[in-house]
């Protein structure tokens, strides 16, 4: 008799502990969920279509042969290749995420952080970068205005 009540008590206790555990987990989840959602940044807002370069940016492009422009929260390298065509690549080096630059004299894209080199199509020539740079569509109109479309070409 006594042992059976003890056993019942025991199962009741372990059931209580189980519920307690579930409750604590649920509580933790209900507290953490809003906090995690709160901390997750919102996607950066901005125009999703093609982005036209400002006059200043075009001026820099003409002078330096390249310019880094923000497009939808991404850094994009816009440069003039030796054939005077305007082209665009992702400016974020695939190695450690430094911003790359165009070296007009050598016609390469170069990352100063760890000496990564890419060709004008974004393919890795030398150095540690594991992947090529993504290509983007860039177009120059008759008036000299430059438009970058944030889609891989």
């Amino acid at each position: 008799m006594e042992s059976s009540t003890d056993a019942a008590k025991h199962t009741r206790r372990s059931f209580l502990d189980l519920v307690l555990g579930i409750g604590a987990t649920g509580w933790l989840a209900s507290v953490l969920y809003p906090v995690i959602r709160y901390l997750t940044p919102l996607p950066s807002a901005g125009p999703s279509g093609p982005v036209k370069l400002s006059a200043d940016q075009v001026k820099t492009l003409d002078k330096e042969r390249f310019v880094i422009v923000p497009v939808q929260g991404k850094r994009i390298l816009v440069f003039q290749d030796p054939a005077q065509n305007v082209r665009a690549l992702d400016a974020r080096c695939t190695h450690e995420g430094c911003t790359v630059q165009f070296v007009p004299g050598e016609s390469v894209i170069w990352c100063a952080c760890h000496n990564g080199r890419f060709d004008l199509d974004g393919r890795v020539l030398s150095g540690p970068p594991p992947r090529p740079l993504s290509q983007y569509l860039a177009r120059q109109d008759a008036e000299g205005g430059v438009t970058v479309t944030p889609q891989t070409a």
Partner: peptide
Amino acid sequence: TKVPFGWLI
């Protein structure tokens, strides 16, 4: 207004 659960915090 914009941040998820920002109003709650």
